[in-house]
């Protein structure tokens, strides 16, 4: 039964209303209230230039993007083969892999982060095991630094990448791979010339999702990072909780929102237009 425009809108209405009420509304109110404290537009502009010009904040913005970028790379490198294994797995193996991927998904981020801290600490399981085996003489610094942030974030964000890639890979017609093989392509060429290009949109979508989620990360870098791993969400929290400088927090929120929305626009465009592929 076709719904029509009005019907679809009616079905969407409760969600839209809720989002307006608990998401768009508060952000709008927060931004206008915080920036309103500054007074006129020119005063806001002055404060914005000063804020974005400050070394701490600039460093945090760059840090945030750099960390999100690194995490995206690691997640992609780990996620691609895993997603492929998932497309090939059948029956019990499929369920097992899927549960392994999804189970942590249902556990709180804080719990997971603390679990990693138990593993990665100076006297954590990994260091003790490696020391015990004689692989290393000194405990590795796996936490309270960049390594810790990347490990923690990778772990949290991996499922998003795997699930996005999985759906892209599942959509590849296996007969195309067989055809390529029949036309003389080696397994590597089948991958490079057919499979990978046909899953590229999934790679881009997954990378964007992971990056978008990554720039907004707060708990993991706060718990597992070192003093050099301040991310923008942490600064926002500090401005609100500690210094109670709402205008600065609002300006940084705007920056984060702008980055997120523009990446989302890229994602949307990309998933709408796939050259050469049927819509």
């Amino acid at each position: 039964m076709p719904l029509g425009r009005l019907g679809a809108l009616l079905l969407l209405a409760p969600t839209l209303l809720l989002m307006l009420l608990i998401f768009v509304g508060p952000i709008g109110w927060f931004l206008s209230a915080a920036l309103g404290e500054l007074g006129s537009l020119s005063e806001i502009w002055e404060e914005a230039v000063a804020t974005l010009g400050s070394r701490t904040i600039l460093a945090a913005i760059l840090n945030t993007n750099w960390i999100a970028f690194l995490v995206t790379l690691v997640v992609l490198a780990l996620g691609y083969p895993l997603a492929y294994a998932l497309t090939r797995a059948k029956g019990l193996a499929f369920t097992a892999i899927l549960v392994c991927i999804l189970l942590p998904y249902f556990t709180s981020v804080i719990v997971r982060t603390y679990a990693w801290m138990v593993l990665l600490g100076r006297n954590g399981l990994i260091n003790q095991a490696l020391l015990g085996l004689g692989v290393i003489q000194q405990p590795l610094e796996l936490m309270y630094n960049r390594t810790g942030v990347i490990i923690g974030m990778t772990y949290v964000l991996l499922p998003y990448m795997i699930l996005t890639l999985y759906s892209a890979m599942k959509a590849v017609d296996p007969r195309l791979l067989q055809a390529a093989e029949g036309m003389g392509a080696s397994p590597f060429e089948v991958f490079r010339k057919v499979f990978f290009p046909l899953t590229l949109h999934g790679v881009v979508a997954g990378a964007l999702i992971v990056f978008i989620l990554g720039v907004g990360f707060f708990i993991t870098p706060a718990l597992m990072g070192g003093p050099g791993d301040i991310m923008i969400a942490m600064l926002i929290e500090r401005e609100i909780e500690l210094t109670q400088n709402w205008p600065v927090a609002a300006l940084m929120t705007l920056v984060l929102l702008a980055v997120t929305l523009s990446l989302y626009a890229v994602y949307h465009r990309f998933s709408a237009e796939r050259p050469g592929l049927a819509a």
């Binding site: 017609d173 007969r175 055809a179 093989e181 029949g182 046909l198």
Partner: peptide
């Protein structure tokens, strides 16, 4: 393997690469 046989093939569903 198929690639070592040097055959041409037309598939039922054509198997044209969409990309």
């Amino acid at each position: 393997p198929p690639r070592a046989r040097g055959l041409g093939m037309v598939f039922q569903n054509y198997a044209i690469f969409p990309h």
